[in-house]
Amino acid sequence: MNSMILANSRPMPEPEFMIRPATEKDVDKVIQLDTQLTGMHKPEYWREKFEAYGRRSDEHFFLVATRGNDFLGFIIGEVRAWEFGSPPCGWIFTIAVDPAQRLEGVGSSLFDAVCDRFRKAKVTKIRTMLARTDQLVMSFFRSQGMMAGPFTELEMEVDA
């Protein structure tokens, strides 16, 4: 699990793309990008996520990056509280950027934008969880300043 303390907004060069809340019209593009990246087509999952996160703006954030008609990426986060005693924190559980649009700061801008939402929700710590083997995304979060946090993910098989 990675976590970091939110600092003040970092000065960023003016991006040539826009970060905004997702709309229903974005969902198909989210599904398409996720299928491209994961090889798993799960439209119902993403439609449910849009209903749960895209239609609320208090402590649930579903943001997308676009340039004109091009869909560049998305990020989803929410405020979670008191799981195993953890005070409210911002959870990022998805980030995806079109491979053809990487190295232009899209991921960093999405990350900064969701951090701004967390900050406005009075949250000063953010966390995420990802596969140890996902070096690309792990390196991305590390480059944003995230370090290992005080929680450990555990799992086991249960009999069917």
Binding site: Q135, M138, S139, R142, S143, A148
Partner: peptide
């Protein structure tokens, strides 16, 4: 390994 391989020199 996951920790060391996820931290670039730039980071």
């Amino acid at each position: 390994r996951a920790t060391l391989s996820s931290i670039s020199l730039d980071t």
